[in-house]
Nucleic acid binder design. Structure first.
Length: 260
DNA sequence: AAAGATCTCAACCGCCAGTAG
DNA sequence: CCTACTGGCGGTTGAGATCTT
């Protein structure tokens, strides 16, 4: 059974999005909020299928998305979580801990960068499946050391274009604007002011659209779907009271201090 | 400088779960 | 209960960028 893919419809445009299409989509979401993607093409006149619109918004236009270089910390988180999370939806789960990154971004980065590095490190063995397995051979510092950054000149990769597109959006959100103007980065070397603002604006946006419990919808979903492994993992990663355990485990795993 | 090889990542595809009618 | 539909996921593709020869 199963229905035919929506993108098979005649007249549906495929391929890279143009700035004009992005502006139309951003304007629509500004007015109506994300969701109800099925009606987006008809209401905006975009010749795109609903899935394409949702994907474009989720992976690229959504406020707070950070593009480009993955920091050693992010890289370490991905490797660590990828090793720990051996269940379906793991990319979404990992993304929920890196709210500035999309699951697609993380998946791409894993497939194009980290996989290769792991293969170099573990040429004769398979990729890690569990924390225990990976702990014996992973060296995150080696992984992070070779990370490179390539800025694409294409429109789709230009954060400047997107900032311009989203300026109105940021200004239109009172909470985001308040945080934007008042927040101070507490000197964290790993997160710049700009990045910090992106996180805050993202959280503000998520709260405004998804409730006030402070959790990202992906996180909520995954916690529900994947308990118990996720609840303990959340504590392990996020609860300061687990810091000692983390440090102990990192030492055991020979992980760098980025996890401390 | 040119051609071929390789890499990157945005976008698409197929599948599945949830849900409304 | 069944069907149709939406939203969301992981896997994959392919065009453009970059590197190598």
């Amino acid at each position: 059974m199963g229905r035919p893919p929506c993108c098979d419809k005649v007249g549906i445009k495929k391929g890279p999005w143009t700035p004009e299409e992005d502006i139309i989509l951003v304007s629509y979401v500004q007015q109506h909020g994300p969701g109800n993607w099925g009606s987006v093409p008809s209401k905006t006149g975009l010749l795109r299928c609903s899935k394409s619109c949702r994907l474009r918004w989720t992976n690229y236009l959504r406020p707070g998305i950070k593009r480009g270089n993955f920091t050693p910390h992010e890289e370490g988180m991905i490797v660590h979580l990828q090793a720990l999370l051996d269940f379906p939806l793991r990319w979404a789960a990992i993304a929920s801990y890196l709210p500035q990154r999309t699951d697609n971004d993380i998946k791409n980065y894993w497939n194009t960068h980290l996989k290769k590095k792991l293969k170099k490190i573990q040429p004769a063995t398979e990729l890690p499946q569990t924390a225990q397995d990976s702990s014996k051979s992973l060296n995150i510092e080696t992984l992070a050391a070779g990370s490179s950054s390539t800025a694409t000149a294409t429109y789709a990769s230009s954060t400047e274009n997107i900032s311009r597109l989203l300026q109105g959006w940021m200004r239109s959100s009172p909470s985001a604007a308040k945080i934007h103007s008042g927040a101070e980065n507490g000197g964290d070397d790993l997160i710049s002011n700009e990045d910090f603002e992106s996180i805050l604006s993202n959280v503000a946006w998520e709260k405004s659209t998804c409730g006030n419990d402070g959790k990202f919808p992906e996180m909520k979903q995954n916690v529900n779907k994947n308990n118990p492994p996720f609840s303990s993992l959340e504590k392990w990663l996020l609860d300061e009271s687990f810091a000692g355990q983390v440090e102990e485990m990192n030492q055991m795993m020979e992980l760098p201090t980025i996890f401390y």
